[in-house]
Amino acid sequence: MPTTDELKLRIEAALPGARADVVDLNGTGDHFQATVISDRFDGLGRIDRHRLVYDIFGAEIGGPIHALSLKTLTPADAA
């Protein structure tokens, strides 16, 4: 079962310089919410920002990770 720490570390490893805050929405280890701040999102629309994060987990989304709700911000958005 994935943990919030595992998800955080994997997002931050895949998007160098990113900061991810991950919450387990129901405490059941399968519905997560992540707020990700990364300069990789600069110039990207919402769809492409979310795809960058979803792609880290591939088929795990919809599998062990039943839901991953995302907020994707650039450092400027978050400032």
């Binding site: 769809i47 795809r51 979803y54 919809g62």
Partner: peptide, 27 residues
Amino acid sequence: SALSNWPTIPQLFVDGELVGGCDIVME
């Protein structure tokens, strides 16, 4: 999901284009 390259449900399309899932629609 294979068609849209989007892994989660729901998925909203407007005029043939993927708008996004719940997070994006709510934003």
